[in-house]
Design a protein around this nucleic acid. Structure first.
Length: 668
DNA sequence: CCGCCTCGAGTTCT
DNA sequence: CTCGAGGCGG
């Protein structure tokens, strides 16, 4: 991979230098400017993503200084201020209190969504766009006029409004941003091209505006909203008027701004926008509340580079920046080596996140994640944190590229990682990490449901040497368990009772608990129904197995392999000797009220757990699937539903709430 | 052989 | 919940 990139970088440099030579020295250009720019762009991006590929003689270094220096300075006539932040409605109320005291007369607010993009100033002369720049430090930004010209949402010539005389010199401020849909498309394209994807739309937009080649900016499909008139215009006395004028001049202006006459109304607006934030095709991270009348704004003035007449209400963040302290390897129950991010603890959406999966090496490479990076972590949509990517600008050069170790970090076995496979594996079935994970899985709720035996106890039992095989569970006694630290007599008694009770779970859950590759809860149920007993299953040939609906060659071979292994044979005999039930109860007679119907559950139901609801459906003859498709008959929707609801709507599948499900169940 | 459908596996915090 | 991959129908 890295070798390929290195080779590509070398090739790009050679072609660029050849082109330079022919153009500057021989005066015989051989490629078009566009082709040349494309080569430069690819090389620059490659080197940005992989600074270790950068060489002192690279054509990208010919221009010398870092990109920030390559734009002309853009001094702001009026400083571009930053806003004070509020994180609660109480902070908004004290903001309002200060305004009320200072003004001593009635006033109104204008509330606008705070677009998560890049603030920009645009200068027009005689109605024509002349110059535009970034915010920079508030006093001086960067002149990015050429790039801004490529943004179609920015008018190059203003329209003539009715009844308002537009001054010769006009400055307009607003936000350049990237639509979520354009962001996703951009990342898909970059992935296809082997380039690292952007962490979020804002980074992609900010990067887009600061491209040295305006054509690269154009490719980003950037959008724009205007939100401030930074020049005095006759007849414009309020922010509300200013927004209307901006619209008449031909700028895109948010359609969801609202004028409020009290802070409570503004707070209600903030809450509403936070609730609806996902319905927009662009990211907003809060609401900006401004005192409406420009005369009031003037009286309130500015302190410490923040206007006293405006405040930003910030939504609960869904993403945060934090440092990736380390990448460690977790060994899964099937022996997979899963890279895990150790994060400097950070608050996201109300919880402290300090760890997140990195899935596999491909994920780490595709997103160019390195140890020591400042990374963006999200919890979008679901609960599970996700490391989206690094903030490349924060790199110090001390970041380390993570490599998969050659040996299992737990047992030291040589790692098995066949070329083309996504996951590396520890091949040692006796690896303590695998034993712990298998034990935990065996005891888990959907398998043998041994209450009290979770991750912590599983770990202790194995490290104390009390349990080395699942079968050892059934020979445990008080004496052996007394060796486990912090396990009192009461816990011991409860645990022994739970272990004894697990013997009655039946064949399907036992099969699932054994953790045979490719055999999950569903397949275990199919096998149990079809073969009825462990002995019948153990005697089945791969052909017998493949005769089952849903069992193909892969699963058949995996099951047969499991029963061929002597260690597994022994395990089963020991379980049998301990009295673990190895037969399946006769299948319930078909023909309930829901027979033949397929259900999918999403969200939290008011009075049933998901498992209880699934059990009710199955006992009435219906089946429960995990994803929505054309074959789904009903989707049962609870509180805080996930993406399945979207899919169901798209496919026009009937939706039920819990009450609706109960009505179906009661119909006989 | 391709595309759809379904299942398996891993996953965070309180 | 999401991704990847096995199973299966067209």
């Amino acid at each position: 991979m890295t070798a390929d990139l290195r080779e590509r970088a070398r090739e790009l440099r050679a072609r660029i230098e050849e082109a330079n030579y022919r153009y500057y020295v021989l005066d015989e250009p051989t490629i078009t400017d566009a082709e040349y720019d494309a080569l430069m762009r690819e090389l620059r991006e490659l080197e940005e993503a992989h600074p270790e590929l950068r060489t002192p003689d690279s054509p990208t270094q010919r221009v010398g200084a870092p990109p920030a220096k390559e734009f002309a300075p853009f001094p702001h006539r009026r400083p571009m201020l930053s806003l004070a932040n509020a994180f609660s409605s109480d902070e908004l109320r004290s903001f309002d209190e200060r305004i009320r005291k200072a003004l001593g007369e009635p006033y109104a607010y204008v509330c606008e969504p705070k677009i998560d993009g890049l603030a920009i100033a645009l200068e027009y002369r005689d109605g024509l766009f002349v110059r535009g720049g970034t915010r920079g430090d508030g006093h001086t930004g960067e002149d990015v006029t050429a790039n801004l010209r490529t943004i179609k949402a920015i008018p190059l010539r203003l329209r003539t409004p009715e009844a308002i005389a537009v001054p010769t010199e006009l400055e307009v401020r607003g936000e350049v941003y990237l639509r979520k849909s354009d962001f996703e498309a951009l990342n898909r394209e970059r992935e296809k091209a082997g380039l690292p994807s952007f962490a979020n739309p804002r980074n992609a937009a900010a990067g887009g505006v600061r491209q040295l080649d305006p054509r690269a900016t154009a490719e980003r499909r950037l959008s724009f909203f205007a939100y401030q008139l930074a020049s005095d215009v006759e007849g414009i006395r309020t922010q509300w008027d200013a927004l209307r004028l901006l619209r008449e001049l031909g700028f895109p202006v948010t359609p969801i701004a609202r004028r409020c006459t009290s802070i409570e109304e503004a707070i209600a607006y903030c809450e509403e926008r936070e609730r609806l934030r996902d319905e927009l095709d662009y990211e907003i991270d809060g609401v900006v509340i401004k005192v409406d009348a420009l005369a009031h704004q003037e009286r309130l003035g500015t302190v410490a580079r923040e206007p006293r007449w405006a405040i930003a209400f910030k939504f609960k963040p869904r993403e945060a920046r934090t440092r990736l302290l380390d990448i460690v390897i977790n060994v899964g129950r099937t022996g997979t080596l899963n890279p895990n991010a150790v994060l400097e603890p950070v608050q996201i959406g109300g919880v402290t996140v300090k760890s997140a999966t990195l899935h596999n090496m491909a994920y780490i490479r595709n997103n160019d994640i390195r140890i020591g990076d400042v990374v963006i972590v999200t919890r979008a949509g679901d609960v599970i944190p996700r490391v989206v990517g690094p903030i490349v600008e924060e790199r110090t050069g001390k970041e380390r590229i993570f490599e998969m170790p050659d040996r299992c970090p737990v047992c030291g076995s040589e790692v098995d990682w066949p070329p083309g496979e996504a996951l590396a594996r520890c091949p040692n079935a006796d690896c303590p990490a695998q034993v712990v994970e298998r034990l935990r899985h065996y005891a888990s709720r959907d398998a043998m449901d041994i209450e009290g035996l979770g991750a912590v106890l599983a770990e202790q039992l194995v490290t104390q040497g009390v349990v080395r095989s699942i079968a050892d569970l059934y020979t445990l006694d008080e004496l052996a368990l007394a060796r486990v630290p912090r396990l009192g007599p009461k816990s011991i008694a409860n645990l022994l009772r739970a272990i004894a009770a697990s013997k009655q779970r039946g064949l399907a859950r036992l099969l699932y608990g054994l953790g045979i590759r490719h055999v999950g809860a569903q397949t275990a149920q199919i096998l149990a129904d079809r073969f009825g007993s462990m002995d019948a299953l153990a005697a089945a040939s791969p052909d017998d197995l493949q005769a089952c609906e849903g069992i193909g060659p892969e699963i058949a071979e995996s099951v047969a392999l499991f029963f061929r292994q002597p260690a597994n044979r022994t395990l089963i005999e020991r379980l049998r000797a301990a009295g673990v039930v190895m037969t399946a109860p006769r299948r319930a007679a078909a023909g309930g009220p829901l027979s033949g119907k397929t259900f999918v559950l999403t969200g939290t139901l008011p009075s049933l757990t998901r498992e209880e609801a699934a059990e009710l459906i199955r006992s009435a003859g219906g089946s429960v699937a995990s994803s929505v498709s054309k074959k789904t008959d009903y989707v049962v929707v609870g509180d805080a539903p996930g993406s399945k609801l979207e899919k169901a709507r798209a496919l026009g599948i009937p939706l039920l709430d819990e009450a609706g499900l109960r009505r179906l169940l009661d119909r006989r």
